Simulated scan of single mutants.
Amino acid sequence: MALEACVEARNQGVAIEKEGKDILTKAAAHSPELKIAMETWKEIKFEFDTVDKLDVAHK
């Protein structure tokens, strides 16, 4: 559910890095499992810096 919500938002031109938590909060309204997960994790951050560094290391 979380992945689908983020992909849909990205496809609609939404900046998921900035609005990711809001996207997931709206999706959690339709998914009790996602709501529980978000309550467990508390703070959700979208940090892509590590992925970019890993890609450079493999070139």
Rank of each mutant, 00 (worst) to 15 (best):
M1N: 10
M1H: 08
A2K: 04
A2G: 15
L3F: 07
L3A: 13
L3C: 10
E4G: 13
E4T: 14
E4N: 15
E4Q: 14
E4H: 09
A5W: 00
A5N: 02
C6I: 09
C6Q: 09
V7D: 10
V7A: 14
V7S: 10
E8L: 10
E8A: 11
A9D: 01
A9H: 01
R10H: 06
R10T: 13
R10G: 01
R10I: 08
R10M: 11
R10D: 05
N11T: 06
N11C: 08
N11K: 11
N11S: 07
Q12V: 05
Q12A: 08
Q12N: 15
Q12R: 13
Q12M: 04
G13A: 03
G13M: 00
V14C: 01
V14N: 03
A15T: 07
I16N: 05
I16M: 07
E17D: 13
K18F: 10
K18M: 11
K18W: 07
K18Q: 14
E19M: 06
E19I: 01
G20Q: 03
G20C: 03
G20T: 03
K21D: 07
D22N: 11
I23R: 01
I23V: 03
L24A: 02
L24E: 00
L24N: 02
L24K: 02
T25A: 14
T25G: 09
T25V: 07
T25R: 08
K26I: 12
K26T: 14
A27F: 00
A27P: 04
A28H: 01
A28F: 01
A29M: 12
A29E: 15
A29N: 12
H30A: 15
P32S: 11
P32G: 06
P32A: 10
E33G: 06
E33Q: 10
E33T: 11
E33P: 04
L34K: 01
L34S: 00
L34M: 05
L34I: 02
L34C: 01
K35T: 04
K35N: 09
K35V: 03
I36H: 11
I36Q: 14
A37L: 13
A37Y: 07
M38N: 02
M38I: 00
M38G: 02
E39C: 05
E39H: 06
E39R: 08
E39D: 09
E39T: 06
T40P: 04
W41D: 10
E43F: 02
I44T: 00
I44A: 03
K45V: 01
K45A: 03
F46R: 03
F46Q: 02
E47W: 08
F48H: 09
D49I: 06
D49A: 10
D49C: 04
D49N: 08
D49P: 04
T50Y: 02
T50V: 08
T50G: 13
T50A: 14
V51G: 05
D52T: 07
D52E: 14
K53F: 03
L54S: 08
L54R: 10
D55T: 09
D55N: 13
D55P: 03
D55Y: 05
V56K: 15
V56D: 13
V56C: 06
A57K: 12
A57R: 10
A57I: 09
H58D: 15
H58T: 15
H58P: 12
H58N: 15
H58A: 15
H58F: 12
H58Y: 07
K59Q: 13
K59I: 10
K59R: 12
K59N: 12
K59W: 08
K59H: 15
